[in-house]
Nucleic acid binder design. Structure first.
Lengths: 214, 214
DNA sequence: TGAGATAATGACTATAAAGTCATTATCGTC
DNA sequence: GACGATAATGACTTTATAGTCATTATCTCA
């Protein structure tokens, strides 16, 4: 009937055996889906489709949806923030400049697309998954707090800061970055925050507050 | 056999017809469940149980799970923040004192338990529900921004502030409150933020930044 | 006080998606 | 270039829960 040789029915895509590459691809697909829809509403079939495989294949590499979720959340947070402690240890400029550097790095890191996906998942699902919350508490909060405390102590020792409610609760200093991430998670489609602009205002605030004796 | 008259099998709780009270009770129950488990993972049967009714009854008052969700989210945000615009309009003290007042009110309001439930839902589900995001964008963001802008303009006019990146993006000023809410959503079980303490540090930061010429 | 109106019930259906597994295709090796 | 090991498949089972509806109990008011 037809002159051209057509593929008549289903075009069955050829299989490929890629034992090594699969887990990472599945995790990447899962990350995207979980960040978009949340854990409960994510369908493993969609994750599979995004990874170019079939649902059953996921189960060769992960025991359950929850196992995949945890694997996805464990991937690549640590590395992103690894460089920070050194920066602080080696620094010899003013306290304000050090804080400025820290905050700038935070914006750079948190707005890396893959890190942003992770952040969205933690923001949306952290409450429902105590194990996840605990993991991130150790990995991010603990370390971040250490760094901040060290900076504050250094500033007090150098006479650039005075003891105050702020130096006792320095987490307040990073409030605006957190707000920017959350904002962009919720209102990205309506009115996204432009990180550079927000960073500039954030640094302006910190300079006004801490930058007298540079 | 027994001397006391026991209720032998199922103690069928007596029905009560309470057409007026039901919707609010269902919404309150839904709010609690949605905030705890998220939209997708919340079971209407649990909502019903919490409201002291049976699943079918929910459908006498709401067309679907999503309708209930939207009703819950529409309840009681507006009222919570209604007082703010007046405060600004009537104020005649320094700009810093006005900002101090605004921020204090924000903490008071956001940590009201019912408001906190709403905040949790928005934080967790805002991204998945564009209609919800839009609603809150209008109700909260729009109004909040107006108030902030008015304060900044007033400060500039009175010579208490100077044009700067911060005055162009004053949202940065409320970053720490947002962070506190998000923090308590995720890490409430591990290391909750004590609002008063955080507020104190937040105000300390703002005073250092803006409070020179009080 | 009893009859009509309807709020509430709970047993039911439909559906969607997690998880399983026998079968099939691929690939390295001999 | 055939063979064995196993990665990948897709059809299947199971389970959970959203949504329906005929029945039942409660309330109101004549």
């Amino acid at each position: 009937m037809s002159m051209v040789e057509t593929t008549p029915e289903k075009t069955a895509k050829p299989r490929r055996r890629r034992k090594e590459a699969r887990p990472q691809e599945i995790i990447a697909a899962g990350l995207a889906e979980f960040a978009e829809r949340g854990f409960a509403a994510t369908r493993l079939e969609d994750v599979a489709a995004r990874a170019g495989i079939v649902k059953g294949t996921i189960y060769r590499y992960f025991d359950s949806k929850e196992t995949l979720f945890e694997a996805a959340l464990s991937s690549g947070i640590g590395p992103a923030f690894e460089a920070l402690p050194e920066i602080v240890a080696d620094y010899d400029g003013s306290t304000f400049d050090l804080i400025r550097l820290l905050i700038s790095r935070l914006y750079e890191t948190l707005f890396i697309p893959e890190v942003e996906l992770l952040a969205r998942i933690i923001i949306s699902e952290g409450h429902r998954f105590p194990a996840v919350a605990e993991l991130y508490y150790r990995l991010l909060v603990g370390k971040g707090r250490d760094i901040l405390r060290r900076i504050i102590e250094r500033g007090l020792a150098r006479g650039e800061l005075l003891p105050s409610p702020l130096s006792a609760t320095p987490e307040v200093l990073i409030g605006p970055v957190v707000m920017a991430i959350v904002w962009n998670t919720i209102f990205d489609r309506l009115d996204p925050i432009e990180p550079r602009r927000f960073l500039e205002a954030h640094l302006d605030l910190l300079e006004k507050a801490l930058g007298r004796n540079g």
